[in-house]
Structure formats: structure tokens, C-alpha cells
């Protein structure tokens, strides 16, 4: 979210959260209620956050850890859950040498506390009020804010068709694997495509490899309805590559919203 680009002016009307508040956004104490491993490296944290007033799917929070000696560390994480009062779910993937992600994935136990501030980011978000087909393109743990959108789509009365294209190294690296499978099975308007960059399943017809232009559906036009809005999230290299392919595929830059994971 730093040095950036692209405003279409439309952003203002969709803004929610911080922009409409007065005074600073407060740090709220949060307590770990439950946790589950999603992959070997990714862990979902279910946090009780008294006073949390909800968020728009796609938004993120700042997390602050404080050590006994007063040392603090702060990072941004996407929210994985749809909007809820007093509760936030994060999915964090451990980064090698990452002091915060290591704590969150390996050390923190139910009952332990941290602080949360948000919701943040008024651009990379989807709400059920937004009509029209949606294409989600995620790389690795970039699927997290996209999952919040999918969960909101399932929970709400929205009938917008959703298509998720999820690129991961191998099937073992897929986060939310069962839930994604179930979504695809039970919702005819939700289509989940998994692609693998290193190695896939024995009966895959697609050769493993990074995202290719033919992996992307064509955009909608006057005759055929296709995605009118695209959200791309993942590591920098993935997002650069995917956004370029989407533009080559015929999507308008102004319809593509990106969120990139730094370090």
C-alpha cells in the first residue's frame, strides 16, 4: 500500500472504515480463542476482539506484539473471515526469520493476547452491495483476503458469480483446501481453479508452472457476461505477473485491484 497508483475516483463511494471515523483508530486487545494449521506453514488464528465493529472483506489489520521487556513489533495481516462483531480471523503464513509470523504460527497459544488495529485499506475490498461477476486471482498466502470475499459471498444474499484462480506450489500448499472444495461443490456460481507451479496431482491435465494467460477467463463484454472486477493478491512477483497477463487478456487496468505482500 505504499507508493502506489490508480484512483478512479470511484474509490470514495466504496470507502468504509477508517476514512469515516474521527480520531485515531484505537489499538484493541485481542485474545486467541482457537487456532488451526491450514498447511505446514499457515495457521488460522481465531481472535476475540471486544469492541471490534466489523470490516469489509479484503481489508487488513495491523497486529502489535509486546514482549515482557516492552519491545514491540508490528505487522499488517489480511483478515480471512467475513465481517463479524468482536471477532477476527487471520491466516498467517510463517516467513523464514519473521519474528511476528513465527510467534503467531508456532508460539501463540489459546488465551494469549496481542493487539489489533483496523480495519485498514479502503481500496482492496468487496462487499455484497457490489454487483457483477468477480474474478479472484491469488498466489500463495495471497488467497487470504480473497477467502474473506468468498466467505462473504457465500454468507450474503449476493448472486454475483465468483471465480477463484489460486496458484500454489503444490497441493500441500493450498490453504483452506476443504472449504474451497466444498464451496465449489455446493455453489454453482462459485468456481474454484487450483494451479500448481512446482508439481500437481497425478491426473492434472495442466503442466505445472506459473500462471499462464490461458489460465485466465476472458473478460466480459456486451455479449457474454464475464468478470467485471478483478482482485489480485500475492507476493510481488506473482502480482506483477498476473496483473500484466490480465491486461494482455483484455481486462481494463481500472477493473483490476491489487494487494501485494511485502515482507
Amino acid at each position: 500500500m505504499s507508493a502506489t497508483e490508480r484512483a478512479e475516483g470511484a474509490a470514495k463511494t466504496e470507502s468504509s472504515g477508517p476514512a469515516s471515523r474521527r480520531g485515531p483508530i484505537r489499538w484493541l486487545p485481542a485474545r486467541l480463542r482457537a487456532a488451526r494449521m491450514e498447511t505446514r506453514l499457515a495457521r488460522t488464528l481465531v481472535l476475540d476482539v471486544p469492541g471490534w465493529s466489523g470490516h469489509a472483506p479484503g481489508q487488513h489489520v495491523d497486529v502489535r506484539l509486546t514482549a515482557e521487556d516492552g519491545y514491540t513489533a508490528q505487522r499488517s495481516y489480511s483478515v480471512a473471515s467475513p465481517s463479524a462483531q468482536d471477532q477476527v480471523e487471520l491466516t498467517v503464513q510463517r516467513v523464514q526469520g519473521g519474528e511476528v509470523s513465527t510467534y503467531l504460527t508456532e508460539i501463540m497459544l489459546p488465551g494469549d493476547q496481542l493487539e489489533i488495529r483496523g480495519p485498514l485499506g479502503g481500496w482492496f475490498q468487496w462487499t455484497a452491495r457490489i454487483r457483477g461477476p468477480v474474478l479472484l486471482v491469488g498466489g500463495g498466502s495471497g488467497v487470504v483476503p480473497l477467502m474473506a470475499m468468498l466467505r462473504e459471498r457465500v454468507r450474503s444474499d449476493s448472486s454475483s458469480p465468483f471465480r477463484l484462480i489460486y496458484s500454489a506450489r503444490t497441493p500441500d500448499h493450498i490453504i483452506y483446501t476443504s472449504e474451497l472444495h466444498q464451496m465449489g461443490q455446493t455453489h454453482p456460481d462459485i468456481q474454484i481453479s487450483r494451479l500448481y507451479t512446482r508439481s500437481g496431482l497425478p491426473d492434472d491435465t495442466r503442466e505445472p508452472g506459473r500462471l499462464r494467460i490461458e489460465d485466465l477467463p476472458p473478460p466480459g463484454n456486451e455479449i457474454t457476461e464475464g468478470p467485471s472486477r478483478v482482485y489480485v493478491c500475492g507476493p510481488t512477483g506473482f502480482v506483477e505477473h498476473a496483473a500484466r497477463l490480465l491486461v494482455d487478456r483484455g481486462y481494463r487496468s481500472s477493473d483490476i485491484r491489487t494487494e501485494r505482500f511485502g515482507s
Binding site: 500500500m1 500484466r244 501485494r260 511485502g262
Partner: peptide
């Protein structure tokens, strides 16, 4: 890290 709101 690279951060931006849309395609480059």
C-alpha cells in the same frame, strides 16, 4: 517490496 493498487 512493491505495493500498489493496480497493474504496473
Amino acid at each position: 517490496p512493491v505495493l500498489s493498487a493496480g497493474p504496473t
